[in-house]
């Protein structure tokens, strides 16, 4: 393949996927990562890319309800499936209980890794898992360089305890 093939799109394909409850259809290169597809083809920039080698967890999204690293999947792999990003776990107004707990406990500083953490924890909670018991496991898949994790753990505990009112 030459550079002309790349830019003229001989390897383009169509991906049809439900993203955050909406049917989305876009033409993209076969080699496009799911993270780039969400960010650049669908404009969902809440999903962040920290390492592109599956180590940092910043790009974590839910695919058919399971937390995955979007930089380790191709967009074509989610064709026909369902993807939930941070935008999909955010209410129209205000914050979700998990987001509010993160805010209350100062569970974020630069906020770059935060969407991935939210997706991991929210995904586990939606799957009916005991998030409190799995805390180390869930957070173990995310690098946060700012917080030292202490307040992230505090936020998840507050969320598990039922939020600000129940927790205090």
């Amino acid at each position: 393949m030459t550079i002309d093939d790349t830019v003229t799109g001989v390897d383009l394909c169509e991906v049809t996927v439900i993203v955050n409850g909406q049917l989305r259809r876009a033409r993209t290169e076969v080699r496009t990562l799911l993270s780039d597809f969400l960010r650049h083809d669908l404009g969902l920039t809440g999903t962040h890319v920290g390492c592109e080698h599956g180590a940092c967890g910043a790009c974590t999204v839910l695919v058919d309800g399971t937390a995955v690293r979007a930089c380790l999947m191709l967009a074509v792999q989610v064709d026909g499936g369902e993807v939930t990003t941070v935008e999909g776990i955010t209410p129209d107004e205000g914050l979700s209980p998990l987001q509010d707990a993160m805010w209350a406990e100062h569970g974020l500083q630069c906020g770059f890794c935060t969407p991935g953490i939210l997706c991991s924890v929210e995904g586990a909670a939606r799957a009916g898992e005991n998030v409190g018991e799995r805390l180390d496991d869930l957070l173990g898949g995310h690098i946060c360089r700012c917080t030292g994790y202490q307040n992230v753990r505090a936020a998840v505990r507050l969320y598990c305890a039922g939020g600000q009112e129940a927790g205090r």
């Binding site: 890319v49 974020l108 935060t114």
Partner: peptide, 21 residues
């Protein structure tokens, strides 16, 4: 007090340089 710009970041509405189009 809670940080003033956190809701934006928590909602996935932060605007980092790779989000500039």
């Amino acid at each position: 007090v809670r940080r003033v710009n956190d809701p934006r970041l928590l909602r996935g509405e932060g605007r980092y340089v790779d989000d500039v189009h």
